[in-house]
Nucleic acid binder design. Sequence first.
DNA 1: ATGTTTCTGTGTCGACCGGCACAGAATTAT
DNA 2: ATAATTCTGTGCCGGTCGACACAGAAACAT
Lengths: 239, 239
Amino acid sequence: MAGRGRPRAFDRDTALRRAMEVFWTQGYEATSMTDLTSAMGIASPSLYAAFGSKEALFREAVTLYDATEGAPMAQALTELPSARDAVEAVLRWNARAYTAEGSPSGCMIVLAATNCSPANAPVRDHLATWRKAGARLTARRLDRAVQEGELPADTDTEAMAAFYTTVIQGMSVQARDGATGADLDRTVDRAMAAWEVVAMPATARPTAAAARPEPADDRSKPADDRSAPATTRPASSTA
Amino acid sequence: MAGRGRPRAFDRDTALRRAMEVFWTQGYEATSMTDLTSAMGIASPSLYAAFGSKEALFREAVTLYDATEGAPMAQALTELPSARDAVEAVLRWNARAYTAEGSPSGCMIVLAATNCSPANAPVRDHLATWRKAGARLTARRLDRAVQEGELPADTDTEAMAAFYTTVIQGMSVQARDGATGADLDRTVDRAMAAWEVVAMPATARPTAAAARPEPADDRSKPADDRSAPATTRPASSTA
DNA sequence: ATGTTTCTGTGTCGACCGGCACAGAATTAT
DNA sequence: ATAATTCTGTGCCGGTCGACACAGAAACAT
């Protein structure tokens, strides 16, 4: 198995796993070569010889993350008999995984490169592609549920998958902000309780008792907004 | 109004707005002093004289962001007569704001410092505090709705606010990944259609036809997971 | 034993980072 | 006019970034 020359003095898989943890915690740009080499226990020339570059190492780390952390999700989506159980399994699993002790909080694919400099745009796009692949996998599972009669024939499966993907990605931010597994479970409770109304057709509007006219706020100007309001300074805030 | 010495040759508010846009687009760490000075049209000594440091400038930019982009949200939350209309107004507003042309996509407070090096942890915590303040403002609005009889007395307002906060934060990620305003609106449709089931009491479990036993997937190991599964490489993916 | 190959550690490269010293320019106060 | 004050632009600081040259060490083949 060993090649011709001097054998490698470190375990490549172990070093890659260490690198994944650092990237997972700090993100791509915020992780320096010094962070990597000290975590992996090797010098930078060994890193370059084994992985090529910092970016190539990151891509390998993402692939490893998907293989180890994401594999059970793909399995649940394809093997569980009902789409509802499959989506709930994904949400419950993530609620625990994002808050598990011994590993960084939140999802690496969501959090590791949300913002970066133009020079590293390829890295950001790489993760975005992976995120979209996950949403698409969910949409295909919902399509199957429509074919099997589990969901109404006119279900907007793309929008439904986008909704649950949005919830999952928001959960990553919540976990990074200190939400507990129980906190995320309460959000999952609500997302799953809404299953029937979320499975609405493409043409429908809010449904239920929600045939509202419009947001009703003063359309002062088409300016932008942020996630939630706070006129004054944040102060302490415990929740 | 002018002081004693040589007057400032640039407009401080304009320069701050430019800085906000750069931080909004690239995030805190990925934005260099060169990025800032070129966008603001001033040299670095002027920046330091006017704002103190890169971090102080960022905090001022966040405050400006909240005052300009977030103020309508706080207004909707406090002034609209029903909590349901208020929350929907916030969601609809954000769906448009996150995807508006002429400004960066997504929410600055969610995206500008999700991951950063330990040295910049104070910046990350600063934004996290702001995010939590928004969630708390929503929770207080829901408390008022309970007091006014709009929501059941046993409503878990904290969990309900956390749910909608999670959706909003997920929408920021979606917008960054290229989702359109119509895409986000479809998610808002579903989040609002679920209003009644989301307003569930603290003790309740999934409700509806969702009294499931457990996720039911093979509990292979307590490892973590990511946002969505993808066994193979991402490939192209258009949605 | 000798050559070939491959990995390891030291040291360092040019570029850029955030931040600031310094001198000159522009204003007000006297 | 002259002094005092404040801003502006040039240039540079020490430190760190990602990346690699180089020589020595450790395995193989012959």
